[in-house]
Simulated assay, not measured.
Amino acid sequence: MESTIKFIGKIHSPLKSLDDCPRQEDEGAPAATIEIFAEYLEGIQNIAPGTDLLLLTWLDKADRTVLKLRPRNDPNAPLTGVFSTRSPDRPNPIGIHTVKVVSVSADGTIEICGIEVLDQTPVVDIKHIWKYKVSE
């Protein structure tokens, strides 16, 4: 079976090296923007400021050979299977990020609050986070 992933955009971030990146978005990640490629602009039509999004990225600098690691690079931690961690190093380095939209421009630029990825990281997909009310 053969599959292809189409990147729909890329991240513009002040983070330029892996050493600059916090481990999680709630650990001091900076604001960034998502540049949506022209052929996918129709797909962001209803994204508005204040919207919560689930952003999927392709962590292209990751080591795709890693199957075991020490979580959070802690030398005292036991070796752990990569699928039990949030490490970017894994066979398919898909990043999952919860972000809030700050602004959306007509040219397809979406300003978001903190995200812990490098500048130029490819965007795989965007999903709206729906908040359903449960009636009693």
Results as ranks from 00 to 15, higher is better:
93 P>G: 02
43 G>P: 01
68 K>F: 14
113 C>S: 09
124 V>D: 10
111 E>V: 10
71 P>I: 09
85 T>R: 02
104 V>Q: 05
43 G>Y: 05
65 T>M: 13
61 K>E: 15
53 L>E: 03
64 R>L: 07
82 V>G: 07
95 G>D: 06
103 S>K: 09
65 T>V: 06
108 G>V: 05
95 G>F: 08
82 V>M: 13
102 V>M: 08
111 E>A: 15
102 V>H: 02
64 R>A: 04
123 V>C: 07
108 G>Y: 03
76 N>H: 09
81 G>R: 10
85 T>A: 06
116 E>K: 06
69 L>N: 08
86 R>V: 13
101 V>L: 13
110 I>P: 01
98 T>D: 12
53 L>A: 06
90 R>I: 10
68 K>W: 13
67 L>T: 12
121 T>R: 07
101 V>I: 14
98 T>S: 10
45 Q>W: 02
89 D>N: 15
71 P>S: 03
121 T>I: 14
60 D>F: 11
72 R>D: 12
71 P>V: 09
56 L>C: 10
75 P>Q: 11
56 L>M: 15
70 R>D: 10
99 V>E: 01
97 H>N: 09
108 G>T: 06
46 N>F: 13
69 L>F: 03
99 V>N: 00
105 S>Y: 04
88 P>N: 11
83 F>A: 03
52 D>I: 13
75 P>M: 08
104 V>K: 01
113 C>I: 03
109 T>E: 09
72 R>E: 13
51 T>K: 01
65 T>R: 08
123 V>M: 07
72 R>K: 13
80 T>M: 12
59 L>A: 05
52 D>E: 15
